[in-house]
Design a protein around this nucleic acid. Sequence first.
DNA 1: CTATTTTTATACATACTATTTAATAACAAC
DNA 2: GTTGTTATTAAATAGTATGTATAAAAATAG
Lengths: 237, 237
Amino acid sequence: MIGDFDSIAGSKRSLHVQVAREIARKILSGELAQNSIIPSEIDLCEQFGVSRTALREAVKLLTSKGLLKSKPKVGTKVVERAYWNFLDSQLIEWMDGISDNDEFCSQFLGLRGAIEPEACALAARHATIEQRMKLSEIFDKMCDIAKADVFDQEQWTKFDTQFHSLIFNATGNVFYLPFGNILTTMFANFIHHTSEDGSTCIEEHRKIYSAIMAGNSEKARAASAAHLLTVKDKYPA
Amino acid sequence: MIGDFDSIAGSKRSLHVQVAREIARKILSGELAQNSIIPSEIDLCEQFGVSRTALREAVKLLTSKGLLKSKPKVGTKVVERAYWNFLDSQLIEWMDGISDNDEFCSQFLGLRGAIEPEACALAARHATIEQRMKLSEIFDKMCDIAKADVFDQEQWTKFDTQFHSLIFNATGNVFYLPFGNILTTMFANFIHHTSEDGSTCIEEHRKIYSAIMAGNSEKARAASAAHLLTVKDKYPA
DNA sequence: CTATTTTTATACATACTATTTAATAACAAC
DNA sequence: GTTGTTATTAAATAGTATGTATAAAAATAG
């Protein structure tokens, strides 16, 4: 009962989210052009085979992410790309298979390179005791995984994600907070670690970890920047 | 017909957005605690004097921004802060009056300082001809305003916003795109320019502008960083 | 050319059924 | 008795259907 094909409705998520995803992907892929008017509510209801309520909730969801805008009489319009909120985890998930994966990851790295070193610096200064303890826990587990005979890739990704995510949470800056989730989403959907990552990167993580724990923001920033340079090497320009 | 006590009606925006804003502000201010269950749909409908349709659309909107999560039987829960999407323009608008303004702006500057110099560097390399022309237009107008006898603060803010916003659009990186809107929102709602800004900052903007037009990414990055240091001086630690 | 009506899209309301799921009760096994 | 499993129940959201209200563009009357 669980395993059957995604097929149509009754699958995983709620109905309006599925409809929203379908529409979003048509927008993201360009199948629905910017500034164009999408079909009317009743047409879309028929097309997707859902009620107007469900469809309207889907439209509201996409409006909230900057993809659509509705006005009475004129219809629902695809807003221009400049207003799409690419810093929304759900939207990022929906990008899967839309654009070139390497290019997408490379662009993300372009942002990460600017933000994460500063986040590490902030975390070194502002992390609470609880957060430092948690970071310590996570790092210990990463060490265990790196030292193990067989490299557990899934576990590594899990704790690597937690490690970087926690750093954003520890900045004490609300604007850095969302990057933890964005990074988590990227790790889960687009960035595929190779088995060599664990052994090669653990020392880089140790430098970041130590600097944050020592409250040395400059060192944390540098260690993070160095780490990201290593990561960058895996992607084409 | 109904609810003439009217908690919300009579304002400008659509009903479900108004309801969403009300709930969002209660969450953001902590009046609705994290992980707590908010009243049931029917209770909230009564409380706000709106239909279930409007209320559910409001809840969907807030769910999309990471503030709420609904499950049958258990109810609708306030998600923990770490998942709130503070990089959403609408959410940022709703923050007005919630937290200390100076602190909020200061934190924003903490992010801006990390991102904008890199955005300028990217723009110098990737801006299209059209974008360079547009940037030129905008900068010319900023010069006019700065040179004028009476400083038109409103106009200055308008073009200053456009200037910085366009730079993010010109990076050619989808993850930098949303910062244009975020910055626009911050300028419109939180950051209040003083009349001296025009005269003092126009030369700094010229350096950024020139570097981008010349395609000199290193110079653009440095000029932006210098500009942000000047801006930073206005805010307390 | 202006004012007004008509049309047509979304916005909102109401009432209903379906589904999910936590909690509980019933029951069996050890 | 304690435990573990399985129906049952009930309370919340999820979804459907259909109505009216309202806003804005377009047609039309004056």
